[in-house]
């Protein structure tokens, strides 16, 4: 009886460990998929006003209003590197470097700036060529802003 119990316990531990090993050896997929250069294609509010049938693009002035506490409103290109650094840049040559991390199975993107401020974005979807980020803004009643990026390379 005791032998049977020990054997069953060993079997459970081996199965669980194998399952865990298999899961965690593949779980870095979002970290692999996000590496590369991305360009912003749109900034929209996730909720429309009643009279708006199509989601309204947020203009550059409004971007400054709602995201002045975030570095991202100043840049259109995002380059995620394998070493967990990110370069935000523009054609004019303006650049900003930070560190990126994904949390909660790749649903949260955090940017850690050199001044130790942390910016948190929700990863709504991460596909091969498209990255959709959400962030909360308390400036505007419509709340969540949706940023869509397309992969360049």
């Amino acid at each position: 009886m005791k032998r049977k119990l020990v054997l069953s316990a060993c079997l459970v531990v081996i199965t669980l460990s194998s399952f865990g090993y298999y899961v965690f050896s593949h779980s870095d997929y979002p970290e692999v998929a996000i590496v590369g250069e991305w360009r912003e294609v749109s900034w929209v509010y996730d909720r429309n006003n009643l009279d708006e049938k199509v989601k309204q693009e947020i203009g550059s002035d409004e971007r400054v209003d709602i995201a002045n506490h975030l570095v991202i409103h100043e840049f259109e290109n995002w380059t995620f590197r394998k070493d967990y650094s990110i370069k935000l840049h523009e054609r004019s040559g303006k650049e900003h470097f930070a560190k990126w991390r994904l949390k909660d199975r790749g649903r949260i993107l955090t940017l850690l700036n050199d001044d130790e401020t942390v910016e948190v974005y929700s990863v709504e979807s991460l596909k091969k060529n498209e990255l959709v980020l959400h962030f909360d803004t308390d400036v505007h009643a419509r709340g969540i802003v949706k940023i869509t990026l397309k992969k360049i390379k």
């Binding site: 899961v23 593949h26 779980s27 997929y29 199975r105």
Partner: peptide, 12 residues
């Protein structure tokens, strides 16, 4: 794979 991660958490 994300599903398996959550499933593994629940199993643990």
């Amino acid at each position: 794979f994300q599903m398996l991660v959550v499933l593994f958490w629940i199993v643990l």
